[in-house]
Design a protein around this nucleic acid. Structure first.
Lengths: 212, 212
DNA sequence: CAGTTACGCTACGGCTCGTAGCGAAAGCGA
DNA sequence: TCGCTTTCGCTACGAGCCGTAGCGTAACTG
């Protein structure tokens, strides 16, 4: 009787369970296809063949190409972290280099931009990208600022709305510059560039924080 | 437009000339289709029907969907200008607002990101985007800096390589922030944001120019 | 007028999509 | 062990779009 009560809580417990290996194989095959073919020539039939599953299995789990690629690319952002390097400048340089490394991978370059383009006409897709990719990056900005405030490198925020606004601005400036440099200018985010960028950004933030 | 111009310059002069109205109609139809359908559901057959031309005419002028959309979107960037507003800050704010207005249009949002995604695997397409979209924006950065140096707001550059490096950095920071804010964060580039952004950027540039 | 090129139209093979239907496989509970 | 349920692999299918070929006509030149 206890077991019967438990079995009702989380979804259907009967029947054949979905294969976790199939999920992993499909996402890996999607990334491989993105590298070899790019977004436009990627077909779900080809992904299924690469993954060793039937095409119908793929359609049972993802609504379409967009959702599949978002999940495949989102996994690449799991590795982003913010190790404490002692100073705000070093923290920023570290996260910029990490972020650029993920963006420079061919599967990210072709996959992420394409789903972002599609997301402009698909709110559900936009939300999926926001939660699985963008917010994960944004958390790094918030962490970095909190650390810098503890160290005394940045003053604490006066009120919550100012704090949110400035965090959004910093996020757009950092992520935007790296994305533009990597995907549009198509030039490397190498140490000299990172140093120059961090210098300008930090001087700007410090100046904006002190005087009006 | 590009194809038509090339055929007139380097090609033979005899025979029926290509219709300039057809070019304009096709590009306008492409933008309309981008607004209504987005990138993925846009088909060349549909564009031809909207433009009132035969599908074969379309294929005679553009190699495919990518090239067509690049030309259709590039035309939207023709209106970008840099009126002299007296100060560097005002110049930056003006160009940022203009740039954001172009990016906020639905045809730009869905079309530009998609061709950028495709360009990661197509060097010719990348070059086409660079000359018809990116370089046109970059020129505004160079103009703005030159004006600021004449006014004395920015010091003249020591050597040419430093000047090029810093122009690239400024361009990536300005365009990147606006692109990220508009297309990824999906929030408006409104006057408060523009003011905050310009303030941080200018303080950063001023600090980087004076200090070590 | 003859020559040349662009155009509209039709038709076509080929590919991908997304779904339906089937029998077999894999777990769960009695 | 035997059902019950769900997933899986496979095949097949209509639909839609792609990109091209062929043909007759239109437009412009010398």
């Amino acid at each position: 009787m206890v077991a019967a009560m438990q079995s009702r809580i989380s979804g259907p417990r009967t029947g054949r369970p979905r294969s976790a290996e199939a999920d992993a194989a499909i996402l890996a095959a999607t990334r491989a296809a993105l590298v070899e073919l790019g977004w436009s020539k990627l077909t779900l039939g080809d992904v299924a063949t690469r993954a060793g599953v039937a095409k119908t299995t793929l359609y049972r789990r993802w609504a379409g190409k967009n959702e599949l690629v978002v999940d495949a690319v989102a996994a690449l952002f799991d590795e982003l972290e913010l190790p404490d390097r002692g100073t705000l400048a070093a923290d920023i340089e570290g996260v910029v280099i990490q972020f650029a490394a993920v963006l420079a991978r061919p599967e990210t370059r072709s996959g992420l931009m394409a789903v972002l383009a599609e997301s402009t006409r698909d709110d559900a897709l936009r939300e999926r990208i926001r939660t699985s990719v963008v917010d994960r990056q944004k958390r790094l900005v918030l962490e970095g600022r909190a650390r810098a405030q503890v160290r005394g490198e940045l003053p604490p925020e006066a009120d919550a709305s100012d704090a949110a606004r400035s965090a959004d601005l910093i996020f757009d400036m950092v992520a935007g510059a790296v994305v533009h440099r990597t995907l549009i200018s198509a030039e490397p985010v190498d140490p000299p560039w990172v140093r120059d960028f961090t210098r300008v950004l930090l001087l700007g933030l410090a100046g904006a924080a002190t005087g009006p």
